[in-house]
Design a protein around this nucleic acid. Structure first.
Lengths: 335, 335
DNA sequence: CTGTTAGCGCTTTCAG
DNA sequence: CTGAAAGCGCTAACAG
C-alpha cells in the first residue's frame, strides 16, 4: 500500500553515481555532464521521484513558506488579497500559510509566534483594528525574517508597506457628491484610532474644503466599532434640525443600513439624500438602489506585497518602500 | 542582527547533558529524571528555545500540516468552513495549508500534487464543479495520506466524507412555501451534473409529491453554470401562460436576481410571488424584501471534517464514514 | 565533471 | 535514568 518515497539515494544506486552528483543533476547547477544530467532526470521521472522539501529546508535553512496574518478571511477584501498573494507565491515557488487574527491583537501575536516557529521565510501582515504595539514585528525582523505590511500598516515601524490611498478614495467619493449638487454632506466615520478610517475622514474633510463647503461638526460621526453602533449614529443624523442631503460612510455595510433606514422614513435615495459607501462589497450591487462605492485594488495589493516580500527574502532588494495604490469610484444609482 | 536559533545542542552543552537526554526531557516521554527534566525546561524557556519543526518532520516523517483544496475562498461558505478547520487543526497542533481550484479540475490536480510534494499528513478537499475522476485522490491515499471530502464529495471513492443534507434543506424550503399556500412553485436548479444541485432538485420534487402538488415540467429550469444564464431562465418563467406563485432557487444570487426582476415587472414579493434562496449568503439579509433561505452549517462541516481527518492520520480510526449534517431554514420577508 | 565527507536539528535504538 | 551512535534526505565544501 504505502509505497515508500524514492530518494536521491535510490537514484544514485541505480545509476551507480554518488548522491552528490545526482543532487547536482537535479538542480540548476553547472559542473555537471549534460549526459549524466539527462540520465538522472530520465530515471527521476520514471521512478516518480519528488525532492523532499523538508530535507532541503533543513540544510538550506529556508522553508519556502510565507506566513500571512490577516483579520478575517470571510471579508471579501482579504479573500481577494490572499488570492493575489497565492498567485505570486506560486509563480515563485513559495507556499502560503495563513492565519486569521479575528481582530484580536493577542490572537495576532500568537499566530505570528506559531508561524515563526514553523520557520517561515517571510511574513505578510494586515494588523488588527486594535494593534498598536510594534514590538512583536520587530522581533520577527530581528530574527532575519522580512515583514511586509499590506492594507493596514503600523506607522512607527521600518518595514515595507503596501497600502491603498484611503484619502484619495474618500476625496473622490465626496467630490462626486459635491458635483451632484450636494452641499450638506455627512460622514459616518470609523474608529478614531484606526489609520485607514482617519485617512478616509481626512479625504472627506479636504474635499469639502477644496470646494469651499463649510464643515458642520454635527455631520461627522464616529462608529467606534464599525458596525454595531452604526444605527444610532444614523438616527442621530436625522434628528438634526438641518438634515443632510448626502451621506458618505466608512464602509458599505453602514451605507446599506443607511439606505434601509431612509426607506423606512420615506426619504428617497438618491433624490432626497444620496448615499456613498466604501469597499465595493458584494452587497453594494444588491441593495436597491445599488450603492455607489469606492473599490480598492485588493488583489493587486496582495500581489505587490508578496512580490516585494519575496524580493526582500531573496535579497534582491534590501531597502524598504511604502507603495500606495489608488482606488476607483464606482458610480451606481444611490447618488 | 540575525541571532541564531538556539538548538537542542546548545541546551545540552550548557547543562552538560547529552542531546538525547535533552530531547527526551523536552517531550512527554518516560525514562527521564524529573529533576533533569525541570532543569532542561527551565533553561529552554530562559534561552527561548523553540523546537525545529523541520528537523522533527524529517525524522518523524510527518509534517503536522493538513492540505486543503477548495473551489474558491471568496465564497462565504468556504471561508467559514476553512475557519472551522483552522480551529480544530490548531487545537490539535496541526497547521493548515490551503489552495483554491477556481472550479478547475486541472488546477485542483496541480494543487494536490503540490501539497503532496510538501508531504502533507492529510488532505481535505471539496471538489470543483467538474471533477469526476477519482484517480488522483486514490493516488494520494495510496501514498498513505488520508483524504477527507467535505461539502462536495465524489461518489465512487472510498473515503470519509462530511456533507450537508441538500435534499432536506430543499425539502424544508419547499414545504415552507406550500404551507404558506403556494401551489405553483417553480425551481431554478443548478448544473445537471453537480450532485448538490441534483439533491436540492430532488428535495423540491419530493416535497411537491408529499403534498400532492402536481409537478409542472415548465416550472423546472436548469442553470448550467449557476449564474450567467440565470436571467434568461427567470424571464422564461414569467413568459409562461400559467405564472408561478413561488420560486425556489438553487442559490441566493439567483434568488436576488429574481427579486430584482419581479420588482421591475411590478410583481410584488411575497404577495404575488414568494422567493426562497439557498446558502444564507450575506446578500440575503440586504435585499429588500429580505430573502428566506437555507443556511448550511459550514463552520461545523469544517470542524468535523478536520477532526475525522486527524483521527485517521493518528490512526484513531481506520474506517471511513459519511457524515451528513442538517441545514436550517431561515424565514425572512420574501416568503 | 564526479566522489568523499560532513552536517542541518532532531529522534531513536542500543548499551551501559 | 543517561549517553553514544546512527540516520532522516539533502546540500555543500573540498579534493581529485
Amino acid at each position: 500500500m504505502l509505497n515508500k518515497q524514492v530518494t536521491i539515494k535510490d537514484l544514485a544506486r541505480k545509476l551507480r553515481l554518488s548522491v552528490s552528483t545526482v543532487s547536482r543533476a537535479l538542480r540548476d547547477v553547472q559542473d555537471i555532464n549534460p549526459e549524466t544530467k539527462r540520465q538522472v532526470l530520465a530515471l527521476a521521472k520514471e521512478l516518480n521521484y519528488e525532492p523532499n522539501f523538508i530535507a532541503r529546508s533543513l540544510v538550506n535553512k529556508q522553508t519556502k513558506v510565507i506566513g500571512v496574518v490577516l483579520p478575517v478571511i470571510a471579508a471579501r477584501y482579504f479573500a481577494n488579497a490572499l488570492s493575489g498573494m497565492m498567485e505570486v507565491a506560486d509563480a515563485n515557488g513559495y507556499h502560503i500559510m495563513f492565519c486569521q487574527s479575528d481582530e484580536s491583537p493577542e490572537k495576532e501575536a500568537s499566530n505570528i509566534k506559531k508561524l515563526v516557529s514553523i520557520r517561515i521565510d517571510g511574513l505578510l501582515v494586515s494588523v488588527s483594528k486594535c494593534t498598536s504595539d510594534t514590538e512583536i514585528f520587530q522581533k520577527v525582523q530581528q530574527r532575519g525574517i522580512p515583514v511586509v505590511f499590506f492594507d493596514r500598516a503600523l506607522e512607527h515601524i521600518d518595514a515595507t508597506k503596501v497600502t491603498v490611498n484611503q484619502h484619495e478614495g474618500a476625496f473622490l467619493a465626496v467630490e462626486h457628491l459635491i458635483r451632484k449638487g450636494c452641499t450638506k454632506i455627512a460622514h459616518i466615520a470609523g474608529p478614531r484610532h484606526l489609520s485607514i478610517a482617519i485617512d478616509r475622514m481626512n479625504g472627506y474633510l479636504d474635499a469639502l474644503q477644496k470646494y469651499n463647503i463649510p464643515f458642520n461638526k454635527e455631520y461627522l460621526l464616529h462608529c467606534e466599532d464599525f458596525q454595531y453602533d452604526a444605527m444610532e449614529k444614523i438616527q442621530a443624523l436625522f434628528n438634526l434640525e438641518e438634515k443632510p442631503d448626502a451621506i458618505f460612510t466608512v464602509n458599505d455595510s453602514i451605507a446599506v443600513l443607511c439606505i434601509k433606514y431612509l426607506k423606512e422614513l420615506g426619504i428617497r435615495v438618491p433624490e432626497d439624500v444620496a448615499v456613498v459607501g466604501y469597499n465595493n462589497d458584494p452587497v453594494s450591487e444588491v441593495v436597491w438602489p445599488a450603492l455607489t462605492t469606492v473599490m480598492q485594488p485588493s488583489f493587486e495589493v496582495g500581489k505587490l506585497a508578496t512580490q516585494l516580500l519575496i524580493d526582500e527574502i531573496e535579497q534582491k532588494s534590501t531597502q524598504h518602500f511604502h507603495k500606495v495604490l489608488s482606488s476607483e469610484l464606482i458610480v451606481r444609482s444611490s447618488s
